[in-house]
């Protein structure tokens, strides 16, 4: 019945999958069984004892203690089994191995920021080596977010003012999707991140020079990629619609009036400053909510964004 499991559950790609999937399928079959069991009993009763005349007399059965005990104790036994099974998996997911590599994940409206042990930072793209335990320490800068990786069967809230943790060992190289599952406002459903499960060599390369593909890309394509992946798209549109921040359409070489009343020419320096020190110049009529990207973007990526914005005439 693997097709049924594959229909219900996404690909499994961490060490937590087996435990959870086994229990999930057990309860699924239990639900299916009792649905049809109860359905069959009802159907049988309705067909067998359908009222034919209003004068029918029914037996006066008030209760049957033995029968009632049976259908209290059997469910009790089943749910205790489920409890223990669920608890077992949870303990495993809870106790972090000592050799786990620690990555700090910070949620903010509406991006995930990752900080690696060596100080490298990425936005929305998390690179982890395959077959090595990784511990994520989660926190949030504004409201509660939740870090959810369906393919790892894992989820943990990121709570402002607190740190929570979760750990996993990814078992196959590839890309796993991350969702935010605690409602956090307008960009909630776009607060997506990806986990790149790398081979050890790939991971080394990543730490050294960032993502390989990205390095080879033409600047303006890189700019678009950054816009898509690093959270720009959540607030800045490309088609002129007003978001949390100004749209990028046609802003190159235009003059922006800042909250301070002065006018600024949108050129390369201006864009660089807006990315690295967003609070220095806020365009009139917008909230000063953009986080700084200092240390989060490589120089080439900033150049890429400038080229990308140039193209958006």
């Amino acid at each position: 019945m693997n097709w049924f499991r594959d229909f219900l559950l996404p690909r499994g790609a961490s060490t937590h999958v087996g435990e959870m999937d086994g229990l999930f399928m057990f309860i699924t079959w239990l639900t299916v069984f009792f649905f049809f069991f109860n359905g069959a009993l009802i159907l049988y009763a309705v067909r067998r004892w359908r009222r034919r005349s209003n004068k029918e007399v029914t037996p006066h059965i008030t209760h049957d203690t033995r029968l009632e005990l049976v259908w209290s104790l059997i469910p009790l036994a089943v749910v205790m089994l489920i409890f223990l099974w669920g608890f077992k998996g949870y303990v495993k997911a809870w106790v972090v191995p000592n050799d786990a590599m620690e990555i700090i994940a910070t949620g903010k409206k509406w991006v995930w920021e990752f900080e690696y042990p060596d100080g490298t930072r990425t936005l929305n793209d998390l690179h982890v080596p395959v077959n090595r335990p990784v511990k994520l320490v989660l926190t949030s800068e504004d409201v509660i977010h939740s870090f959810y990786i369906p393919e790892f069967r894992l989820k943990r809230d990121a709570i402002p003012g607190r740190y929570t943790e979760l750990w996993f060992t990814a078992t196959e190289p590839g890309i796993a999707q991350v969702y935010c599952t605690e409602y956090c406002g307008k960009g909630h459903s776009d607060m997506l991140a990806r986990i790149f499960v790398d081979t050890p060599e790939q991971y080394e390369t990543f730490l050294r020079e960032g993502d390989e593909q990205v390095q080879k890309m033409p600047l303006k394509d890189l700019g678009r990629l950054v816009w898509e992946n690093k959270g720009c798209a959540t607030c800045h549109s490309l088609d002129g619609t007003r978001g949390q921040g100004p749209s990028w359409k046609g802003i190159w070489n235009q003059r922006h009036r800042g909250a301070d009343g002065k006018e600024h020419l949108v050129d390369a320096d201006y864009i660089r400053q807006s990315i690295l020190m967003p609070q220095a110049m806020v365009v009139q009529g917008y909230e000063p909510i953009m986080p700084t990207y200092q240390g989060l973007l490589r120089e080439r990526e900033i150049l890429g964004l400038i080229e990308f914005i140039k193209e958006l005439q």
């Binding site: 920021e113 900080e115 504004d142 609070q279 220095a280 000063p288 909510i289 986080p291 700084t292």
Partner: peptide, 9 residues
């Protein structure tokens, strides 16, 4: 990391 929410310019 990062700036507190609502920090003035």
């Amino acid at each position: 990391t990062g700036q507190p929410r609502g920090m003035p310019a």
